[in-house]
Design a protein around this nucleic acid. Structure first.
Lengths: 206, 206, 206, 206
DNA sequence: CATGAATGAGCGTTCATTCAT
DNA sequence: TATGAATGAACGCTCATTCAT
């Protein structure tokens, strides 16, 4: 007799993934305000919203699942790209280039994230949005690179927090730019950002 | 005999201003999704939501009034600060410094704007948000400065659109940063940005 | 010193007439349900609905004024046309012909009447509509003619109430017919009705 | 294995029927203007108006369901009664007799129909009421009988449209008459109408 | 005679969620 | 695992009317 380990069934996992995908599309297309269980169910081809309530404890859990899922994918992608880099200038260049590439390839996901960050106020969390917590991670990551560069003498002396926030913002803004300019040349965009922040960060020649 | 031109009464103007102010506060504090007539009325101390419907044709008109009001204030402020500047480096420096100052002094307004831009999809406008149209103006303004700098030989050869968007994003992000770090030194923040974008834009010494 | 007799001012009378006219147009065009003080005021070019409340005790009084006004006009018109007729066949013929003419010349008024009859339930009157009371008058008038015709031997023996109601309904229906068939030949319509009810009512030849 | 075709559940059908019935009663008793979801729910004994919104897409769908339902019942009734009749005089006689009987037995339904026709302006349909479309059907049906009678030489030469409209109006008016005279003898009413329109339509003896 | 301001009640509709299988 | 049925609360908005001048 075989002991089946406890855990979500295959079917359940698939359903959850399907619902998450439909939620991302709805968020990207209609915005947070219009993203209702009814519209998600319609897009996912579900017979009723009941299935969403069944698989997720509530709207909050659904949204945080969406966020986790996207961050997971992004984290794995970035980890692969940045592996084996050592010096800060390379790390920063690769960070920017890779993130532009990821964002370009995951536009709906990025728009979904933005929608959630700016709108989903969790009442149990004192009304705080996700933004504060989650975006700090990204900024922290960049800031670590910048600090290393300064320690190694590669970068000039600037406020690492301000610079990290500026870099992160320039990347986060890409989805909005793409909305206005769908034909934007992304390689060029990455190269321009790399050059801009290379000039802004590097230590002056002696 | 004086002909008094038709127009809104003093009382009406005051009420509208009061409602707009309460709307901005609510948007900043609770986000667009939670900004309902009931909550606005409560914050403004109105007896019922009916007074909002009385003074504004609908939620859309209220929101666009909020946007116009804030943009008006900001435009006047920036106009005063930038008057008399001629060279691009000065203009850019003053633009960044002044906008940081304005944003720091109008945090709720800025958060209200962001809330509206990202959530208020006008169904009559094909579901488009305000963002596309209005933010382009700000980017266009910065881009004009950058182009002038390149034409005058002050700035190096970069993509003015990408650079303008990057600068604008670094400024737009301030409210979020302040939310996380309320004690942020704004003078320093402005100085860091000025330095960063001065290094990133200026023509190399020959 | 002249003693001005008590009573409505000229201005007031004019305003009331203006409001009544706008009400009739609105009723005819949009139906009772859409006939609100706001829409009446708009059509009458009034600055606010307050003027209607000022001149009429309420919606009920406004509506009953509309009814009275139209019935007054119609009564005077019919009275003139039927004067001098003595025999029932002539009276019936003239009644039908004249009423068709009046209705054709007062379509908005007729549609307004229908709207009110079918929709304006007066809660103080036990929810009764105008219909019962007012339409009985018209039927009563026709019935009197029919009774006279039977007494004089001109008409055959039929139920005068049923016949009167049938005749009145055929006339009341004209506005709806005109709505569907704007080009309807009214002279022909009147002649057809006259023939129809002449055949239906007259005593058989001996 | 039996494939059960998709479709409304038994429970859902019952609920819809219950709501439709309550709607008809409310329309008949209070008129269209007072027929709100709240009053319908109250009459149907529903816990909230939400149940109506749950089973019908909106007020428009509810009203058109009411109309369809009544027309369906009426159509089936009339079809049965008129089956097997061939000559126009018989058809007309049966049509009048059967419709009087049906109307007498379905007074609330008839009043509900009238309420809807005269008040439910569909904004998506250019503000047109149901009246134009649906009542034309009834007139068209009668007109066909009249044309046949003329072609067969049974009826004299009259305008079939005017005559059909007159006949239909005399029948449609029955609910209002019954409101004023609840004790009206319906058999007699039908006989009087049959005689009236027989005299009015039949070809003169040669 | 006129009017701007204000109001409570009610409208149809949509929301996320729960109940009962 | 899935689903139809039901629900109370809240939404933006419109109603006729009243207040105060």
């Amino acid at each position: 007799m075989q002991v089946t380990p406890e855990g979500p069934t295959f079917t359940a996992t698939a359903r959850r993934a399907q619902i998450v995908a439909a939620t991302i599309d709805t968020l990207a297309e209609l915005g947070y305000g219009q993203t209702t269980f009814a519209r998600i169910a319609e897009r996912a081809g579900l017979s009723s919203t009941r299935l969403i309530s069944y698989h997720f404890a509530g709207k909050a859990e659904l949204m945080s699942t969406v966020v986790s899922e996207i961050y997971g994918t992004m984290g794995r992608f970035m980890g692969e790209r940045m592996a084996g880099r050592a010096d800060a200038r390379s790390l920063l260049r690769v960070y920017i280039t890779a993130l532009v590439e990821f964002i370009a390839g995951h536009q709906p996901q990025m728009q979904a994230l933005m929608s959630i960050f700016l709108n989903h106020h969790d009442p149990d969390d004192g009304g705080r949005s996700y933004d504060a917590g989650d975006d700090r991670d990204a900024i922290g990551h960049v800031e670590a690179i910048l600090r290393q560069g300064q320690a190694d003498g590669e970068f000039r002396d600037f406020d690492t927090f301000v610079m990290a926030a500026t870099i992160q913002r320039s990347l986060d803004g890409l989805p909005f730019l793409l909305q206005t300019r769908p034909g934007l040349d992304l390689d060029r965009y990455a190269r321009e950002l790399v050059t801009t922040f290379d000039l802004a960060t590097r230590a002056p020649a002696r």
